[in-house]
Structure formats: structure tokens, C-alpha cells
Amino acid sequence: MDTEKLTYLKEKAREIRYLTMDEIGYLGVGHIGGCLSIADVLAVLYFDEMRIRPDEPNWEDRDRFVLSKGHAGPALYAALAAKGYFDKSELHTLNRPHTHLPSHCDMLLTTGVDMTAGALGQGLSCAVGMAKAGKAFHKDYNVFCIIGDGESQEGQIWEASSIAAQWKLDNLYVFLDYNKFQIDGGLDDINSLIDPVKRWESFGFETEEIDGNDIEAICGALQRMKAVRGKPKMIVLRTVKGKGVSYVEAAGAGNHNMTFTPEQTLAALKELE
């Protein structure tokens, strides 16, 4: 991939991380770990891959995005603000009374959010519905969806993936944020996915596992996936929960929902400048 594009997307990922940290730090609490882990894939989707019009957010032919792990809403809001869906100053209203930016995604409140999600497991089914509707309407849009690894313990994820393959939804691209932590501890200590690539392959998905914090790897996997017809796609993103802020990364399982003092926020932002 050309270096100019790579530099641009890396800068966008940095900006998403910075805005997310500022957004959550300003409030003093939030789901920082699972936000920072997906900043790179959000940068690729919103600044390279997706066919979207920020000035026409409900454009019928747009690509759709569903953040099934809805608690990472603040990262999506940062990407949407950076893309120009709304003013960046709105990010400081996160979770305040009457905000348009609630902790978990709400399509009725936030410009640019395509689906309400956050009750884990449901977003992927909604993405399947959107992809199936696209086929029925003879539209050529794609649907992108990010699920969590902890979220994959919900049975509905497997109901959704099963029917997506049955329906041959090759316009559906699912990313698994495989950061290996959940609220109660390490994923493998609680309820392991054992081998997510084998699982998703056996469910009928074109599957690839990559370094999920590597922009070039994400772009490359997407390009390879696009050539595949007749089946839905799964890209397993090996990520670091809290990626980009050493203090957050070091908290490990403790970074799912963290509190920040103004001093901690400033130090974190300095690291992301």
C-alpha cells in the first residue's frame, strides 16, 4: 500500500484515539480499553473503505456499520466527529443529560450511527438483517460489523453467523476484536474461544486472523476478502485492549471501564499527540 495513504490512515487512527481519550477523560470515566483497541479498524473503515456521505447520513446506498460491541460507542463517536458527521465539541457531552452521545450506540440519537446496539449479541443479527435487505433491494452496499470476543460468549452471535452463511451474505464483513480480556478477567480464564479462526471457518465464513492494530494488515485483509463471493467474511483482529496509552494497556482486564483524574487524562493525551 502506498506510504501516503498509510501515513494518512495512521494519523486518523491516532486522531480517533486522541479524541476518544479526551472524550472519556473529560467525563472522567468510560469503556476506554475496548475503544482504543478498535481505533485502527475504525480509521480504515471511515477514512478509506466505507462508501458514505457525512453530509447525507441516511443516504440509502451507503455502506452500513454496526458496532455490536456497543460499549465502544465513544470510539465510534470520535471517528464520526473526525469524519465530520458532527462537531468535535459535542464529544465533551458524552453521557451527560440530554446528550446525543450515550455510552452505548443509539441510532435515534447520534447522526451517523446506523444501528442501536450494546445489548451484546444483537448487533451482529441486525447487521445480518441489513445485509439481507441489501440483497433483496438489489443494492450493492456492504455492511461492516465489529463484535467483541467476550460478546462471542452470547449464543446469539452463533445464531446470527449461522444464518449469514446460509444466506451467503458476501456483503457482510465482521471483525472480531480479539483482545482477550473481558470484565471479569482474561477471556481464556473465563470462557475461551479456543480457536476463533477454526470456529468461524466451520460456521461458513471466509476467515483470516491478522494484527488488528496494524493498518496495513487490516487494509490487506479487506482487499483479499472482497474477492471472495458467496460467503460472509470474518477478520479476526488480534488487538491490544487499551492500545496507545501505556497506563491503560498496563491495566489489562482492569481497563474495561476506567476512571481518570484530570492529571491522568493529560498524561494519556500527551502520549497520543
Binding site: S125, G129, M130, A136, G155, Q156, E159
Partner: peptide, 17 residues
Amino acid sequence: AEQNMASVAAGIAAAGG
């Protein structure tokens, strides 16, 4: 898979159905 049915329906509805 009734739970999936409900959310898939919501997704189709979000796309205009």
C-alpha cells in the same frame, strides 16, 4: 432461533423494510 429473528428483523427495518 427466535432471538436472531427479532434482531435480523430490526436490521432489515433499519435498512428500510
